[in-house]
């Protein structure tokens, strides 16, 4: 299998960039691209000391797989992709998402990595609650889900 997706409880085990790069390596792949998302200490003028990630894991993992398959359709079946998204509370600097793409050449790896993170941001069932240094917490305003991937039961 050349796609790995998961939602991980980051309060139990942190996300691991080395694991992602190892997964996308293969003898035929001369390029590997890595994207890391981390909790930053400031957002929209407010000082942040942590973020809690809420995830509807079954649908999120299916959605990650669909996005990775789309990337393979765009940039080739040789593409190997790793996606792990965190669930639970992280402090500033903690990794919330790790994406790696391996491909024969660099252009496909860079493009696929960018595609996967951008699609996850607008399509995947994940929510952030920011915790501020003044003790307040707020759910981050996000992207309303569109019709993509919709289906009707028979």
């Amino acid at each position: 299998m050349n796609i790995h997706v998961e939602v991980r409880d980051v309060t139990a085990a942190p996300l691991d960039p080395a694991e992602a790069l190892n997964f996308v390596e293969s003898g035929g792949n001369g390029a590997g691209a890595l994207f890391l998302g981390a909790v930053r200490n400031r957002n929209q003028g407010r000082d942040v000391n942590g973020v809690s990630y809420d995830v509807f894991a079954p649908l999120a993992e299916q959605n990650f797989s669909e996005i990775c398959t789309e990337a393979q359709q765009k940039w080739g079946d040789e593409l190997r992709l790793f996606v792990a998204h965190g669930k639970g509370r992280l402090d500033v600097g903690g990794l919330s998402i790790v994406i790696a793409a391996g491909s024969p050449h660099r252009d496909e790896a860079f493009r696929a990595c960018r595609y996967v993170i951008e699609e996850i941001k607008t399509r995947s069932p994940v929510w952030k609650q920011e915790h501020y240094t003044d003790g307040d917490s707020e759910w981050v305003q996000g992207h309303a889900l569109c019709q993509h991937g919709e289906h009707q039961h028979d």
């Binding site: 998302g37 990630y53 995830v55 509807f56 649908l59 999120a60 998204h85 919330s96 998402i97 993170i117 996850i120 941001k121 607008t122 399509r123 995947s124 069932p125 994940v126 929510w127 952030k128 759910w139 981050v140 305003q141 996000g142 992207h143 309303a144 889900l145």
Partner: peptide, 10 residues
């Protein structure tokens, strides 16, 4: 089922 408010992953 699940109720999915606007998403903010990544």
């Amino acid at each position: 089922l699940a109720i999915l408010p606007p998403v903010s992953g990544g």
